[in-house]
Every structure is written in structure tokens, then in C-alpha cells.
Design a protein around this nucleic acid. Structure first.
Length: 81
DNA sequence: GTTGAGCGTT
């Protein structure tokens, strides 16, 4: 299972994301997709935790939280197609 | 500023 994190500042890094979610459990993977052509950040990212319960807890706690001056959105991510 | 990649046979 993976987590979708939206409404992020374009100024954050994968390390920033990892730091936030690491507070709820071990972060297995973090990914900030860049625009395939411009290489610029798209304002959202993905996080995977080692433990699903901690992952759910992180989603519930961080969704709608104020972070870097923005109210972030956190949800269970959909698998890629 | 809201759902990731690549051009390959795991």
C-alpha cells in the first residue's frame, strides 16, 4: 500500500516528506514525481510505510495538516496504471 | 497547483 500526498509546496524535497512520515513508523519509500519534460516538481508525492497500521495512522493524522504553510492532503494512493 | 515510469520481458 502506498500513500498519496497532495497540495505540497513546490519547495519541498523527498527528505522533507520522509521526515514527516518517519514520525509514525519506518518509511520504506518516498517518491516525488517530477514533470517528465520540465523536471520540475508537480506538487504531490508518494510515501510507503513498512507497517500498514502506522501508515493508516499517518494518513489520518497528516491529512489536512498544516505543513510548510500549506494544508496538505494525504490519502491512500491508487496503484499506477 | 490533487495520483509516480519506462521503451522493457521482472
Amino acid at each position: 500500500m502506498s500513500i498519496y500526498v497532495g497540495n505540497l509546496s513546490y519547495d519541498i524535497s523527498e527528505n522533507d516528506l520522509q521526515s514527516v512520515f518517519a514520525d509514525y513508523g519506518e518509511v520504506k519509500r518516498v517518491y516525488l514525481p517530477l514533470d517528465r519534460e520540465t523536471k520540475r516538481k508537480r506538487g504531490f508525492g508518494f510515501v510507503e510505510m513498512s507497517n500498514d497500521d502506522e501508515e493508516i495512522k499517518a494518513i489520518e493524522t497528516l491529512d489536512g495538516a498544516q505543513w510548510m504553510g500549506r494544508q496538505i492532503k494525504v490519502n491512500k494512493a491508487k496503484p499506477r496504471d
